[in-house]
């Protein structure tokens, strides 16, 4: 009887861990992020073309980011609710592309700085924050990754990154709010499209 129970437990565990889609559990946040960040740093040292390295980095990080939520929050729920589904889709696409590009831009100046992991701490409203420090030439920068329990499914995803106390989402919210006072939403979409750092079909 005991053996069967044990077997069942193992099977159950196997079932949980073999769910094909990636799911980041609460207690895995730190080790998984550590290995992902290490992977990114390894990729950076490779002598590949920027395009290939960029793809690899994005592929590594994509599963842990809740891009859809980030796009929504960056615009604020109120504005998000006031635009058409087509605009929402277009905005998400452009915003997410921009987010990724700006992340990659910054990595390029990475210069063997040391990353220190300070652990996962409870954050607002049952959310979690992974705290890290990057030892730079001049200062030590705090980089915090904020996670939420996506749809209460136990899959933790990043919805904001704070760099030295500055929330990426918050700065975007303020910028969009400011822009919306002067421009229509379609004009903002146009600006996002034009600001695209890279055109399509380059390589």
């Amino acid at each position: 009887m005991i053996k069967i129970n044990k077997l069942l437990k193992i099977l159950l565990l196997l079932a949980i861990f073999s769910i094909p889609s990636f799911a980041l559990r609460q207690n895995e946040i730190e080790p998984v992020m550590q290995s992902k960040i290490n992977k990114v740093l390894t990729v950076l040292k490779k002598k590949e073309s920027n395009t290939i390295r960029g793809q690899e980095i994005i592929r590594t990080l994509d599963p842990v980011f809740d891009y859809g939520l980030m796009a929504k929050l960056a615009l604020s729920s109120k504005t998000w609710g006031s635009i058409t589904p087509a605009q929402q889709k277009e905005f998400s696409r452009l915003f997410i592309a921009r987010l990724k590009q700006s992340y990659l831009d910054k990595l390029d100046l990475y210069n063997n700085q040391k990353v220190i992991y300070k652990g996962v701490k409870p954050y607002l409203k049952g959310r979690l924050q992974l705290q890290t420090e990057v030892i730079g030439k001049d200062e030590t920068y705090k980089i915090n990754y904020n996670f939420h329990n996506s749809n209460n499914s136990g899959n933790w995803l990043i919805y904001d990154v704070e760099l030295a106390g500055v929330s990426i989402i918050q700065t975007y919210r303020q910028q969009f709010a400011g822009l919306l006072k002067e421009k229509s939403f379609n004009e903002i979409l146009t600006q996002l499209r034009e600001n695209q750092p890279l055109k399509t079909k380059q390589s």
């Binding site: 390295r53 793809q55 990659l104």
Partner: peptide, 20 residues
Amino acid sequence: TATSITSLSDVNATSEINTS
């Protein structure tokens, strides 16, 4: 500063977007 690493169109092609 630096040159940009990648082409966005490629990046997007490789990734699925998490949506909440």
